[in-house]
């Protein structure tokens, strides 16, 4: 079952005016249950708008979507959803503990063990020492930790996190990553919006790239970062003199000693090259598809998208 299903979703702000902006354009996406899903995109790509539509904070112009099998227009489904907004403002006169109590009650979480759960969450986000301090005295990082606890307070099945590590120090980021893994192990689904691509790469199972409201690519981090057309070879006995012969038939883009980088059109061509090596008695030590970082892939994809427009 999918925790999120989005069908042909579009959002145009200020429609029928000169200021009309298409924030989302015919967007389709399905996210399986129990996944940590990362949504990436430059500023203004439509990431926050998408989350807001899914949570009923903003309305879609066309299309429909379901979360946890329910139409997003049914506000009651949000009992099973947690949300950490990008910029969150808590009543400054409440303490951290009171903030969690208020949002738990509002989320319909009236469990008899609410106090215990709040205590546990505050410990989990390392805020138990500050639970009786008013949130107006909290730093950005502390607010973010409290925000994460707030997003988990109703024991949700699906959690939306918009820039969860914003303003958090490296140790705090590691702790947040650990919490995300814990949640995943508990079977929760997590929808993550982040600019920190290296972090997304570390925690997510699936990733989508969004630019100007259009979904550019979607898949596992492995799928997106593996360049299937470029392969790195390492040999035991590659003879330099043979290289020109290979260059006539194959697209060799790099050669250094016993290492060779080749671009192939498809798997058939790759096998043809391997056959050729074997026929020539070349001993292959390793063949590795070239891997990019998520950042490399993201930048090249966005550049490509810009050039195509």
């Amino acid at each position: 079952m999918n925790c999120i299903e989005i069908n042909n979703l579009s959002k145009i702000f200020n429609p029928n005016t000169k200021k009309a902006v298409a924030a989302l354009n015919d967007f389709n996406l399905s996210i399986p249950n129990g996944t940590i899903f990362g949504l990436l995109g430059p500023n203004g790509a439509g990431k926050t708008t998408l989350i807001k539509i899914l949570l009923g904070i903003t309305y879609a112009s066309t299309g429909d979507a379901k979360i946890l099998g329910e139409d997003i227009l049914n506000y009651k489904v949000k009992r099973k959803v947690g949300y950490l907004p990008e910029s969150h403002k808590y009543p400054p006169y409440l303490t951290g503990e009171q903030v969690l109590k208020f949002y738990a009650k509002l989320s319909g979480y009236s469990h008899s063990e609410l106090d215990k759960r709040i205590e546990h969450l505050l410990k989990q986000v390392k805020m138990n020492k500050w639970k009786n301090t008013k949130v107006k005295a909290y730093s950005k990082g502390m607010m973010q930790r409290l925000g994460l606890a707030q997003a988990m307070v109703n024991d949700p099945e699906l959690i939306f996190l918009d820039e969860p590590t914003d303003g958090v120090d490296p140790i705090g980021r590691k702790e947040i990553r650990d919490i995300l893994f814990e949640l995943k192990n508990e079977g929760k689904s997590i929808f993550l919006n982040s600019h920190l691509l290296s972090e997304v790469e570390m925690v997510t199972d699936r990733v989508a790239i969004l630019d100007k409201g259009v979904l550019l690519k979607e898949g596992t981090v492995e799928e997106l970062t593996t360049d299937k057309e470029i392969y790195n070879f390492e040999f035991e006995n590659f003879v330099n003199a043979n290289i020109d012969l290979y260059k006539e038939q194959f697209s060799i883009i790099g050669h250094k000693g016993s290492k060779l980088t080749v671009t192939v059109n498809d798997t058939r061509e790759l096998n043809k090259l391997l056959d050729r090596f074997r026929n020539d008695g070349v001993l292959i030590k390793s063949v590795v598809p070239q891997k990019n970082t998520l950042e490399d892939m993201f930048i090249s994809l966005i550049k490509e998208s810009e050039e195509n427009k």
């Binding site: 009923g56 904070i57 489904v77 949000k78 910029s87 969150h88 808590y90």
Partner: peptide, 15 residues
């Protein structure tokens, strides 16, 4: 209705 407050409020199961 301030940004940050309203987002949180409307993300809860409240009509």
């Amino acid at each position: 209705l301030e940004k940050g407050s309203i987002d949180l409020l409307l993300s809860k199961p409240v009509s």
